[in-house]
Amino acid sequence: MGKFISSLSLIFLIPGFSVAAYAEDQNRLQQPYLVNMEREQKQNLPLPDFKDVGVEEEQPQDSAQSSKAIKRVVTAKLMTNFSDGNFYAEKLMSRAELAAIMVKTFGLDKRQVTDKDVQVADVPSSHWAYKDIQTVLKTEIMQGYRGNLFFPNQRVTRAEGLAIFAQAYGVFQFSDDTVAEILSQYSDKESIPNWARKAVATVITEGFIDSWQPQLSPLKPMTRGDMAYVLSQYLERQQPQPDTPIVPGGSVNPQPGL
């Protein structure tokens, strides 16, 4: 697998990731994960306060495997605990939350974009994620829907979450054959939407998702724990690598015949 990775010289954004295609896929799915966060709040489920909060040493609702990833991303301030101090890894990701995470992770607000705000009918300037949503729209990391809608409370499928992460990270322009080879290990590969296949292949190749899982479950909603794992693996890749040791009397880059 590493052989063809080394031959890549350019990273591009997802081709064909258009507003129309995106909206068409969502309409086809009839937006099954559209929820109202205010209704959740009335059910006594705490909402994220998106402030700097400490990492709890013990979070019994999370597995031991995911706790390390959660602690890492909260420490890095890419995600936060809820106002009650718990992370709630099983809770589902919303588009607004995903937008905020992408801005923090990739510093999207540092990129040069137009000062003119994008008109989004369902995201008023008073919305907690207004600035982040404006940023992902201006940088085209995320797309809106027909009618100038963003659906900030809509749940994100795993395919969407991984594709949008890859959109910000950079999607490798694999050939169709290479994509098919990368995805071949998963029994549900045929359920990955066409627009997400190269993006999903990218995150698999870069080691951002569990390679031992037999299924990708691309049409299932993405949980906060799912995203925490992806971000944790990304942070791991950002760690400085050990310097190449220099052999005494030798050369780091020996020339042929010398």
Rank of each mutant, 00 (worst) to 15 (best):
Y88G: 00
W195I: 12
M1A: 10
F4E: 12
E181I: 03
P256E: 07
N27C: 01
S175R: 01
L149D: 02
N81R: 10
G250P: 03
S211M: 02
S18C: 01
E24I: 06
M102D: 06
D25R: 11
M142I: 08
F12H: 15
F4K: 11
S9C: 03
D62M: 10
T205H: 04
I204H: 08
P46V: 06
A100L: 10
K42Q: 14
P245V: 04
T139F: 06
I204N: 08
N153L: 02
P240R: 02
S125G: 04
T244W: 01
Y169F: 14
A21V: 09
R39I: 10
L162R: 03
Q239N: 08
L29H: 03
L137V: 08
V55N: 02
N27K: 14
K68G: 07
Y234R: 06
L8Y: 09
V35E: 14
L108V: 11
G250N: 11
F17D: 11
M79W: 04
Q65T: 14
P46H: 00
K77T: 04
M102F: 04
Y234Q: 05
K77E: 12
G107R: 09
E236Y: 09
P221D: 04
A99C: 05
G144C: 05
D122K: 09
K71P: 02
Q173C: 02
S251V: 06
K104D: 06
K131D: 14
H127A: 12
S18G: 03
P248K: 13
S175H: 00
G54I: 05
T139H: 09
W128M: 06
M142P: 10
K104V: 02
Y33C: 05
Q112G: 01
V252Y: 09
I246K: 14
N36H: 07
L34E: 11
V179F: 01
P245Q: 08
V247T: 14
M37T: 14
I11L: 15
K3F: 07
S191Q: 15
R197L: 03
E38Q: 15
Y130P: 07
I11E: 12
F172L: 13
N148S: 14
T139A: 08
S217D: 10
K138A: 03
Q185S: 13
D210F: 06
P124M: 12
I204M: 10
S125Y: 00
S175K: 03
S175L: 00
Q233K: 15
E206G: 05
P15W: 03
T139D: 10
I141S: 14
K71I: 04
A168H: 07
S191A: 11
G250I: 01
F82P: 03
P248L: 08
V55Y: 01
V118M: 11
T205K: 12
A168P: 08
D49P: 02
P48E: 07
P60Q: 11
Q241S: 07
I164E: 11
Q213E: 12
E57T: 05
D176K: 13
V179G: 08
K110I: 01
D84R: 01
T157E: 05
E58R: 15
V113R: 07
F17T: 02
V113Q: 09
Y229Q: 14
W212E: 11
A20C: 00
M79V: 06
L219V: 04
A100V: 13
A99I: 05
